[in-house]
Design a protein around this nucleic acid. Sequence first.
DNA 1: GGATAAAGTAATAAAAAACATACTATCGGA
DNA 2: TCCGATAGTATGTTTTTTATTACTTTATCC
Lengths: 128, 128
Amino acid sequence: MCAKKASEQKTEEPRCPIRYMLEMFNGKWKMPIICMLAGGVPLRYSSIKRKFGDITNVMLAQSLKELEAYGVVHREQYNEVPPRVEYTLTEKGQSVIPALTKVAEWATESMQKERLCGAYCDKCVLAN
Amino acid sequence: MCAKKASEQKTEEPRCPIRYMLEMFNGKWKMPIICMLAGGVPLRYSSIKRKFGDITNVMLAQSLKELEAYGVVHREQYNEVPPRVEYTLTEKGQSVIPALTKVAEWATESMQKERLCGAYCDKCVLAN
DNA sequence: GGATAAAGTAATAAAAAACATACTATCGGA
DNA sequence: TCCGATAGTATGTTTTTTATTACTTTATCC
């Protein structure tokens, strides 16, 4: 009836949208990457890596690849030497920003109420 | 300057609200539990367990305990036999619902565009 | 000719999350 | 006296994530 990804064929239940989102953005880095790209400026692999400071090649490459597979991140490769690869949000990726911003606003307010210094984040564009 | 939880004392950086949220709702079950409680009806331990169907005692008890520690879930114990314990969202827990609803709406639209049958979820109240 | 930069990959190890199974206390009812 | 229901705990195992370290390619610069 409805097309499903191979990994989801096993269940015929209607899928929970929250779980769909959790699957797409699972792990430690995917949402922060989306936030970082939310500014609209194309970012190179090395630039993302430098901005985070504490992400490994393995995690960054894997996260970007999975986000690309989900259609939220676009990878543009320029055949230069040394190679240049730029990442941007796709239309789908951009479409999640308003919702993520809501979440970031809520989180910022919560942190402020608890005096947890959540005033701003220098790595992502949201809630600034 | 700002009060911080013990676990966060190590870093003096401003915290990213998205990471704060990810820490609070980490794992497979916490967001779905919040969604399930979003209806406003107090739910018993066994009732939550039954609604999910595939959550273990360990995961449910642990998730509820952590959500309680973060102040988003309230646990009310009635000293009856057999024991009765009811869970509800706290004010803080309720305050996240609009943001989560935005996310659920985005996810539902995405799933529909991809024909992934995301029309509704019978376990949570959001995006219905 | 060797160092350097970018954007990764490969292989392995460590840590964390999730799962499976069994078990507990208490009291009322059959 | 044994059974069942509730709300979990205890313990061990498997699975998944994350981290560590080293390595690759290509062409230009010194």
